[in-house]
């Protein structure tokens, strides 16, 4: 069981047990373990989470503007966070366990600055280079094993890389029988260079420097699983 973080988790509605609408998943926090595996660790919420996703330059400028609107506030640049293990289920909404009131906490300064914490929004769109890949390839999506709210191992298993914009695959990479046939054909043709790369020693992700290097020995999976 896998899910694609940008397609299935990002931008979904967060609700609590009672069905209260709490927020959108504005970004997803990823944590890098000492053994190198990457796991989803939290859902980020609020302006400091969504503004950077509005484009590299515009996003940066808007985020700064958001901070400067109230320079006296120390926490203005940090989003709210809810830990990933609060998720009870992921369907067309992200349902949290328990009462949602007061469930969003401000991300601590230490955690926001930690080098082993990445944001999915930063990873998406990062240039990916390697033999056999289209030269304009970027990270389009992040395939995660497991399912939030269910037991088992949760870690980033593969990257979907290819030229284009994250999200533009619209889910047509996941199954082969998603209609309408005409739109499916157009989307698949536009993303004919997209590949799924399994994470392994051959895949080196440098989120801070903004690049992904994929070695010759990396394992490529077919796009439609």
């Amino acid at each position: 069981m896998t899910y694609d973080a940008a397609l299935h988790l990002l931008d979904r509605q967060i609700v609590d047990e009672e069905g209260r609408l709490l927020a959108k998943v504005d970004d997803v926090e990823l944590r890098v373990d000492p053994d190198g595996s990457i796991r989803p660790s939290g859902l980020l919420v609020g302006m400091p989470a969504v503004l950077p996703r509005l484009g590299r330059r515009v996003g940066h400028r808007l985020t700064r503007l958001h901070v400067e609107l109230r320079p006296a506030a120390e926490d203005r640049g940090r989003p709210l966070v809810v830990d990933i293990d609060r998720i009870a289920s992921l369907t067309s909404e992200v349902r949290l366990s328990g009462d949602g009131r007061g469930s969003l906490r401000r991300l601590s300064a230490d955690r926001a600055a930690a080098g082993d914490r990445w944001r999915l929004g930063e990873l998406l769109g990062t240039p990916a280079a390697g033999p056999g890949l289209h030269r304009k390839s970027v990270v389009l999506d992040v395939r995660i094993s497991g399912r939030p709210g269910e037991s088992g191992e949760h870690r980033v298993a593969a990257l979907v890389v290819g030229p284009g914009r994250s999200g533009a695959l619209l889910g047509y990479d996941r199954t082969s029988d998603l209609g309408p046939a005409l739109i499916a054909a157009v989307v698949r043709w536009m993303h004919r260079h997209a590949r799924v790369v399994e994470l392994g020693p051959e895949v080196e992700i440098d989120c801070a420097a903004g690049r992904v290097r994929i070695g010759a020995g990396a394992s490529f999976l077919p796009l439609r699983g």
Binding site: L10, D11, R12, K24, D26, V50, R53, L54, G55, R165, S166, G167, L170
Partner: peptide, 10 residues
């Protein structure tokens, strides 16, 4: 927003 992302969605 879920299908077009925050930028196009906006």
């Amino acid at each position: 927003r879920e299908r077009l992302g925050p930028r196009m969605g906006f």
